[in-house]
């Protein structure tokens, strides 16, 4: 195991309990996504592992080293890209990235810094002051800083908040390359799609507790329910018998039909449903599909907890 968290808890001075006895194991070379709504404890968990927040109880080891008694060993292994864009506005890109490397006690290595900056399309900007960069570019700088000391574990806290499509693609490319070189990657997000796109395993965290840890494929099956809502021209008293084979519910006093389906199933049944509706002479004025929000899914997950 690369990271092992046991009974980890954190209560802030104001009494807020951010983590309630977290147990978690993350394997070497894994891409692990921590999924949860805002305030679930994702950032606190990462901050404890990285040494920014002092835990109230429990134990964390990174590559077998305790994060408190052997902090030098664990922190040398870790690179952190925090959620907020916090940079030295007046310094140049090259300076801050070299600074990060030095802070971690690593010998200057111009070739490595060049590679990191080129991978993140920052090489042409190396002599620019950070305040002249756009938000997306600053995000790249944050990543470059985290990679400057060649970490074996990379934490990405909400990496795609406010990031355009292009950078997102580049970022996932960097993540894949890092994984190929054996780096363990832990990212937090509140977008299901993001976890789906990149992670091997997903943990869902809410109110400071891990609700489930699952392989991505399994989780996606569980979370993949979607609804098709049809607004009807005329009121229906009940779902017609001809349509009973479809999973339909009548709503809005008979003016709306709701069809629930699984997006990951081989066939969603939508074509057949629409054909049957046509044959039954049911006309509709509008239709839309909705996916249950993550919050709703959390509620259902919490409820289904034994």
């Amino acid at each position: 195991m690369m990271i092992s968290v046991s009974h980890l808890s954190k209560t802030y001075d104001d009494g807020f309990q951010a983590l309630k006895g977290i147990d978690l194991e993350i394997g070497r070379g894994e891409i692990f996504a921590l999924l949860g709504p805002n305030g679930a404890g994702k950032t606190t968990l990462i901050s404890v592992i990285c040494g920014i927040v002092t835990p109230s109880g429990g134990r964390v080891t990174v590559d077998g080293h305790d994060i408190i008694s052997n902090y030098r060993a664990t922190r040398s292994l870790i690179g952190l890209v925090p959620q907020e864009l916090t940079t030295d506005a007046f310094e140049t890109v090259g300076h801050v990235v070299r600074f990060s490397r030095g802070l971690f006690g690593k010998k200057p290595d111009a070739a490595h810094i060049e590679k990191v900056l080129k991978d993140l399309s920052l090489w042409d900007r190396r002599d620019n002051q950070i305040m002249t960069l756009s938000g997306g570019m600053k995000r790249r700088v944050m990543i470059a800083k985290a990679l400057a000391h060649e970490p074996r574990v990379l934490f990405l806290d909400e990496p795609t908040a406010g990031v355009d499509v292009e950078l997102r693609k580049e970022m996932w490319q960097v993540v894949h390359d890092l994984r190929a070189s054996g780096v363990t990657i832990i990212l937090t997000t509140h977008y299901i799609e993001e976890a789906e796109e990149i992670a091997d395993r997903v943990a869902v965290i809410n109110h400071g507790e891990i609700i489930l840890v699952e392989d991505k494929a399994e989780l996606m099956r569980k979370l993949g329910k979607k609804q098709l809502e049809l607004e009807l021209h005329a009121t229906l008293k009940a779902v017609p018998k001809k349509l009973s084979q479809h999973d339909l519910v009548l709503a809005a006093d008979g003016l709306r039909l709701i069809y629930t389906y699984d997006t990951h199933a081989e066939r969603t049944g939508i074509t057949a449903l629409l054909k049957d509706l046509h044959e039954a002479g049911i006309r509709f004025r509008d239709l839309q599909t909705t996916q249950s929000s993550l919050e709703e899914i959390f509620v259902s997950l919490v409820r289904s907890e034994p």
Binding site: C50, G51, I52, Y71, R72, A73, T74, R75, S76, I78, L80, P82, E84, T86, T87, D88, A89, S100, L103, F104, G105, K145
Partner: peptide, 13 residues
């Protein structure tokens, strides 16, 4: 003030 203190706190120093 800028928030870059996170780096000092998470570095092996």
């Amino acid at each position: 003030f800028t928030g870059t203190i996170y780096e000092l706190l998470s570095a092996p120093i």
